[in-house]
Design a protein around this nucleic acid. Structure first.
Lengths: 165, 165
DNA sequence: AAGGCTAGATTGGCATTGCCAACTCAGTCT
DNA sequence: AGACTGAGTTGGCAATGCCAATCTAGCCTT
């Protein structure tokens, strides 16, 4: 039985969208589970084996991610195999890719390791991409030009071409 | 005395930059402390009062953030006041703004609350900004065009809708 | 139809982290 | 000197995480 932790509940009810996002994602594993979906992993066993996460924690994290619409649990059957469950990213899950990319960009820049690394690239051109602030015309703006200011919710509703579908 | 947790250590030594970033940041409070710096908070007491975080946890989190170069502890003295400590964001700390903005964008879109919120805007024009993937020329590309590929192997897809069978 | 196999959890025991309140300590100010 | 106060520390306890062992329900074989 899943009982939502106090910390998650507090965060999820926050008026700040950052805090609510963290209510779903701020633990040692959730982001890494999403990362694994980028490499095509979908099943309980794949997550367990690639991450080395304790199975009870994995059960709980998958439940939280499904509950908040990041993943969707769908039956799946390979030929000659029994039915299994796959945890497929939803559109909301796909929208986390840019958060992961931003984290990757930051870690590569500020916690370097001189190792092989994975970078976002354009599927069309194959050229590398980066994560940046862009203005309403889609042109990137320097990091220093970005400031946070409060506004009403309706102002951010317009979200033109962010989602693919 | 601060002893680094096993989970942080494991993550910080990962070859994946996402995992290393999470080694510094993946807990219920670190991102929120960084968020508070966006609103000008700098001192122990300001973080404690605005976040309601337990003081022992705050001590530990500030230590971790200083240790990894996100914040810098500097003496600070207001007129007619005793010397106090301020935790100032470093350049690495400022670079986290885009991660926070990405989280805010995701939470506003997928965990809506119809509340006042804070959005990134251009300091120059005052127009709203958003976080996007951009190509080498600084033009935004659609989320669907972004895939993750390793610098060594280019066969890892970000697009999760294709599963081999 | 019975039995075995195995993916996907669940459970128990212990370690780590988080939370709260009370307490300490060291500069400042009077 | 003595009081004040910002910035932590400490102690007790609850919650979460980790690991190994165990359970369960579909599916397959016989």
């Amino acid at each position: 039985m899943t009982v939502r932790s106090r910390a998650r509940t507090r965060a999820l009810e926050d008026t700040c969208a950052i805090a609510r996002s963290l209510g779903v994602l701020a633990d040692p594993w959730s982001f890494l589970i999403i990362r694994e979906t980028l490499f095509g992993r979908r099943t309980f066993a794949e997550f367990r084996d690639s991450l080395g996460i304790a199975t009870d924690v994995l059960t709980d994290r998958l439940g939280v991610l499904v509950e908040h619409g990041v993943l969707q649990k769908v039956p799946y059957r390979a030929p000659q195999q029994r039915t299994r469950w796959a945890y497929e990213p939803t559109p909301a899950g796909h929208d986390l890719n840019i958060v992961l990319a931003a984290l990757q960009q930051w870690g590569a820049a500020h916690l370097p390791r001189n190792e092989l690394t994975v970078v976002p690239t354009s599927a069309q051109s194959g050229h590398p991409l980066r994560v940046a602030f862009v203005d309403t015309e889609g042109r990137s703006v320097s990091q220093g030009d970005a400031q946070f200011s409060s506004t009403a919710r309706s102002d951010i509703e317009a979200d033109p071409d962010r989602r693919s579908s």
